[in-house]
Design a protein around this nucleic acid. Structure first.
Lengths: 190, 190
DNA sequence: ATAGAAACGTGCAGACTGTATGTTTTTTCA
DNA sequence: TGAAAAAACATACAGTCTGCACGTTTCTAT
C-alpha cells in the first residue's frame, strides 16, 4: 500500500499510545503488560521497542499527550476576563471540565507521580497549568508578595485543584468543591 | 533456642516490614523484588508468603505502620490550645515534623496512592489525620457551615498539607510553605 | 536498480511472582 | 511424657514478563 516512513511511524506510535492509554486507565501501569498493549494496538513488541526505549517511555509519551490535551482544552475557554478572583475561579472550572475526561485523573494524578517521580511531575506541571495559575494568583495578591510565597501558594492551590478533581471523579458534588475553592481563593485577597 | 510461635511470628513480620520499608523507600515499590526483601530481612520467600498474602499485602502492612507512626508522633504534641487558627497551624507544624522522617513522603504520598488506589488512601486518611483536621476546621468556621462544604474544605486543606510536605522534602523553604498555609487558613475565618 | 537505512518480526535469556509441596519447630492433649 | 496436629518455615516449579539480539521486510536515496 506504499506508506511513507513518516506515515508508518506516526500511525504505529499513535496506535501504541492510544492502546496503552486504554489499558493504563483500565488496569493501571504496573498491571498492564506490553503483550496486551501490542495486541490491542495491532502491532508486535518489536515495533514497540523500536519506537520506545521501554515501557516507561511509552507511558511518558501517553502522559505528555494527555497533559497537552488538558492544556489545549483549558486554553480554548481561557478568555481570562473579570476580576482576578473570577478569572481564577473560571480557570478552576475549566480545569475540572478538562479533568472530567474519563481516565484523566487516574493517569495524571495517580499513576504518573509513582511512575515518573515527583520531579518529572513538577516539570510537567510547570510546563502546563502552573504558569497561568501563578500569574492569576499574582494579580489577585498584588505586587507586594514575595516570589517565594507566591510559589508556595501556587503549589498549594494546585494541589487543592488536583484533590478536588479526584473527589469529583470519585462522585463528590462538584458544586461543593468549587465553593470550597472559591472560599480559599477569596480568603487570600485580603 | 525455643521461641514461642508468637515471638517467631512477630520477629519475622517485623524483620520483613523493616526490610521492605528500607527497600521501598530506596527503590520504590515496583523496582523492589521479593528476593531482595527477604535477603535484607534474613528470611526466605517461604516465610514472606506464609505471613503475607502477596507483595502488596506486605506493602500495606508497612504503610499502616508508617501511618500509625505519623499519627502517634502528632498526638504527642497535640495539646490543641489557643485559638482555632493557632491550633490548626500547630497541627500543620506537627504534621511537617512527622513527615520529615526520611522516606515518609515517598511511602505515604507517592507510592501508596498508586499501589493501593484512591479509595484505600482515603480510608487511611480518614483513620488518621483527617479527623483532627476536620474538627479544627469546624471550630474555625463556626457551626453554620454545611457538612458537605466542611468535608470539601478538609479534603482540600489536607491536599495542601501533603503538597507542602512534598515541597519541603524536595528542599523548599519550610517557613515559606508554613506561611502560605497560614494565609490559606487565616483567609477562611472571615 | 541497488545499497543503505528504517520499520518491523521472532526468539531467547534472565528475572520475578505466586503456589504447591516438603521439612522443621512448636503446641496440644491424652 | 509422647504422639498428633498445627504453625512456621524452606524449596522447587510453572507461568509470565521485560528487554535485547538478531533476522526480515519495506522504504529511501542516488
Amino acid at each position: 500500500m506504499a506508506r511513507s516512513n513518516k506515515e508508518r511511524t506516526e500511525a504505529t506510535r499513535l496506535a501504541l499510545i492510544e492502546a496503552a492509554r486504554r489499558l493504563f486507565v483500565e488496569k493501571g501501569y504496573a498491571e498492564t503488560a506490553t503483550p496486551d498493549i501490542v495486541a490491542e494496538a495491532g502491532v508486535t513488541r518489536g515495533a514497540l521497542y523500536h519506537h520506545f526505549e521501554d515501557k516507561r517511555a511509552l507511558f511518558l509519551a501517553t502522559l505528555e499527550r494527555e497533559a497537552q490535551a488538558v492544556a489545549a482544552q483549558i486554553e480554548t475557554v481561557s478568555t481570562a476576563s473579570g476580576t482576578p478572583c473570577e478569572a481564577l475561579l473560571s480557570g478552576a472550572a475549566a480545569y475540572f471540565d478538562a479533568m472530567a475526561e474519563p481516565g484523566r485523573t487516574r493517569l495524571l494524578l495517580l499513576e504518573a507521580p509513582a511512575v515518573l517521580g515527583f520531579e518529572a511531575m513538577g516539570a510537567i506541571d510547570r510546563d502546563n497549568a502552573e504558569g497561568t495559575l501563578k500569574t492569576g494568583l499574582s494579580e489577585l495578591l498584588g505586587p507586594h508578595v514575595g516570589a517565594e510565597k507566591l510559589q508556595a501558594l501556587t503549589d498549594l492551590l494546585s494541589a487543592a485543584f488536583d484533590r478536588a478533581a479526584i473527589a469529583i471523579e470519585a462522585g463528590a458534588d462538584r458544586k461543593a468543591y468549587e465553593a470550597a475553592i472559591a472560599d480559599l481563593i477569596d480568603g487570600l485577597r485580603a
